[in-house]
Design a protein around this nucleic acid. Structure first.
Lengths: 257, 257
DNA sequence: CGACCGGTTGAGCATAATCAAAACTTGTGG
DNA sequence: CCACAAGTTTTGATTATGCTCAACCGGTCG
């Protein structure tokens, strides 16, 4: 939990591990299959080479620090695979995860010259990294890029407000139900039909730090929901939703009794 | 607490009370003394007439609804005097205030076609109101305006993250101390020298809903801080900070004991 | 004056935290 | 393939922080 002060752009334990992508050339952005889900979509095909030139694609193992809390804000990231956790800490080690940045999300934006938050990979993550100068050029040269970024930050703010409601006013049960539903994805399988799945790449510690609870309370609450037949655990990192309606009611306190 | 559905742009109880400012003419923005503290600063003097034309200045009494949770997002506001509270609610009436918008703050931005939050005046408030179309024109025509707005939303997001840390991980004592210090302003008076003052235009209910506590806990905690000599109450809506250092330590749990 | 509203204070309680230990996973090496 | 170690998750017992319920205070307004 101890934060090592950082004088260079990239923490040493990260620099050691950075791996340039095989497709790290001029056509990288053109071939990128998540482009339409990110800010990069604001730049048209002809000019994608500029974008590819302005960024570097990196593959990072779980637990890599992308952003050190309080360090100089020199780099910005677009997540193209995996999940990144964003957090803030108190001097005594208490930590609040403020969000999970999944595929397509942009992170690192700040007005201050230093980051006010930390960012660390949850699983194996692929990101495109922009320097401050590169990002500022993109903002100035491509109004659509800036507009898209404004939309993304606005959306992140709305999510933050939702999370404040959760942290300030919801019970442990309501928090866990809200979390599961927010991360739910519906798969359509030929055999099973519609299947509502929640993948949890993060540990219980991360979930607890995100929901403002302890790991014990998270564990107990998930066990209770399973015992009641609302969810079924595949393994510890995957859950199947069995009673969607009831869970939805639970998120806002309409307990079915 | 019951939310009346709203079909028109402006809630009826608000429309009734809207009062056009005396200076609601072409030079209004030029004469505006808080321009430099707001997004309007991004537009140069020559073109301020356009801005004045694009917005209407309104004076609103305490308790006026500016934005109804879930209603169509048609208007946007710049606060030029007073304090506005932003909040989200649960069906059973539980409420979380996500922020207070003071002088210079812009509010109402959303990607969705409806507001995901509510906004209500705390005291007597003066705002400049923009319609959606007017705002979009400004964004497109004035890149600096958009840049400034991006900076403002980014800043609001950073504050939201700080508040998530407070709501998820701080004790009641730490929350109240953080709140007081965040709202503190330092006055330099000729007689008293430096004076650290906190003005609290909002009620205890609002403070509690902002800090994720009950009014009783807020009241008890403020009383305790006063008893310990860290603060002194002027009246219920004003507090003087006596022990800044100790309060600062308190915000992050470094209890001096 | 009495009702009302906002704030304060007190007593008892409940939810989630803490402390502790067992069960399960995962990775490593014989 | 199994044994073992380390780490993560689950479960249990107890406690504490902040909530609920309730009474009271002080100012304001009709």
């Amino acid at each position: 939990m101890a934060l090592e002060p950082q004088t260079q752009n990239t923490p040493t334990h990260m620099r050691r591990r950075l791996v340039l992508s095989a497709g790290d050339d001029i056509s990288r952005c053109l071939l990128c299959d998540i482009r339409e889900h990110s800010v990069c979509n604001a730049i048209n095909d002809k000019e994608l080479a500029i974008l590819a030139h302005a960024s570097k694609s990196l593959s990072l193992p779980p637990g890599t620090t992308l952003v050190e809390e309080g360090s100089p804000a020199t780099a910005f990231f677009n997540v193209t695979a995996g999940t990144v956790k964003l957090f803030k800490s108190l001097p005594d080690g208490r930590r609040q995860i403020t969000g999970f940045a999944d595929v397509g999300h942009f992170l690192g934006l700040t007005n201050s010259s230093t980051y006010s938050f930390g960012a660390e990979t949850v699983d194996t993550v692929r990101v495109c990294r922009f320097s401050r100068a590169e990002l500022e050029n993109l903002l100035t040269d491509y109004p659509l890029f800036e507009r898209r970024l404004l939309a993304e930050v606005t959306d992140e703010l709305a999510q933050a407000q939702e999370q404040m409601l959760l942290l300030g006013r919801k019970t442990a049960r309501e928090r866990v139900a809200s979390f599961l539903l927010a991360r739910m994805v519906v798969h359509s399988t030929p055999e099973q039909g519609e299947e509502a799945i929640v993948s949890l790449p993060m540990t219980r510690v991360d979930i607890a730090d995100y929901l403002g609870l302890t790991i014990e309370t998270v564990s107990r609450t998930i066990s209770a929901l399973r015992r009641e037949g609302l969810i079924a655990g595949t393994d510890h990192h995957g859950i199947r939703i069995l009673a969607l309606q009831k869970l939805q009611a639970l998120t806002s306190g309409q307990e079915y009794s």
